[in-house]
Simulated assay, not measured.
Amino acid sequence: MEKVVFTTGGTGGHIYPALSIAKKVRKKGIDTLFIGTKHRMEKDIVPNENFRFVGLDILPLRSIKSGFKMITATAGAIKLLKKEKPAKIIAFGNYITIPVLIAANVLRIPYYLQEQNHTMGQANKWFYKGAKKVFIAFENTLEGIKEKYKRKFVVTGNPLREEFYGKNKQEERRKLGIKDDERVVLVIGGSLGAKNINEAILKKWKTIMEDKRIRLFWATGKDNYEASTYRIRDFGTAVVEPYFENVPELMAASDIVICRAGALTISELIQLEKPSVLIPYDFVGQKENADVLEYANGAKIFTNETAEKAIDEALSIVRQASMLEFMSENVKTLKKGNSAEIIVKEMGI
């Protein structure tokens, strides 16, 4: 039986795109194996999705000790791949993928890369020249690639959970009990929330509550819920939770989204054609991810220090139907379709 090895790990941004593709591969009756590190979240997430998983002892390359562990892990990866005999390998970036990619080169196993962010990570930079194909989320990533290698690159968007496809805005609004004349503002700061965004929302709380047409859905983050809500006396129609389990539905129903600029969040906004106000973190390439939408006139970017202005801007845009439509149409031009399906096809699976 044909077999595909997935190497990924470290963060949800690396793991969930891999799982989206692996589920498509599994439906075709093809065997799969995940290889990651035994120290990070993939060791729990991947087996919970009923995929085989092997965790190597890999650490970030920051010391002599981690260098030796990388060498040992690479030897282990070579031994493992000799035993498993995969037809193809696909890697999703970061240091965790290095041992398997070195092993793929040693054993001459064809490999593919997937890059979630606008700016390519170091591991993918090291290995893309030997890849069969490199699947990138954003067209702008090609700007940093030498002309002779561009033929390897395929712009696919990021693989997302199936729940983000096929959503209808009006249907989701009906399910959530949102009135036709209400304007929905969705605020999400990531799994841990965003303190700066939360504080800005609180300072603008009276303004938000005064406009009865605005319906706020606000995820404070698990660790920030009590601190963000204990001063609020009147919640009005606002829905405030530590986090939302139904983000695809809420995002589909929303008119504008206030959020960070992680790679998958940007791709979710594109898939659902959502105008947004983005407050990127100052690290991990979020500003460059946000630029993708701002350059297309589909988003406005603010900093942590100007978070209050970001809320004001979102409240202004959400009252302007023509501006919402303009931004949404611009975001729509960035859509690529179901990325996982495109990648599986491009890999010849």
Rank of each mutant, 00 (worst) to 15 (best):
E2D: 06
E84T: 13
L278Q: 03
F68N: 01
L278W: 03
T8K: 00
T74S: 09
Y95W: 07
A87T: 13
A314I: 07
R231P: 01
G348P: 11
E84Q: 15
G193Q: 13
G29Q: 08
K125M: 08
E49K: 14
K132L: 04
E273I: 01
K83W: 03
I258Q: 02
M41R: 03
I266F: 10
I64V: 11
D312G: 09
T220H: 08
A299S: 14
T97P: 00
G166N: 10
K212F: 04
L81F: 07
I279K: 02
A307P: 11
R52S: 11
T333E: 12
I136L: 04
D211S: 06
K146E: 15
V344H: 05
N50G: 00
T333H: 09
K274N: 07
A75M: 14
K152E: 09
V185E: 01
T333M: 04
K287I: 11
A261K: 01
A290K: 00
V331T: 14
C259W: 02
A296H: 14
A299L: 05
T265K: 02
V5E: 03
W205I: 01
F153A: 12
A261P: 01
K132T: 06
F302V: 13
N330S: 11
Y112N: 07
I197L: 15
T8P: 00
S328N: 04
D180L: 11
S316P: 00
T11E: 03
G130E: 14
T141G: 03
I89R: 08
N289A: 12
F235A: 07
Y95F: 15
L264A: 15
I266Y: 06
V247H: 00
N338M: 07
K148A: 05
M327C: 09
E288N: 12
F235K: 13
T303F: 07
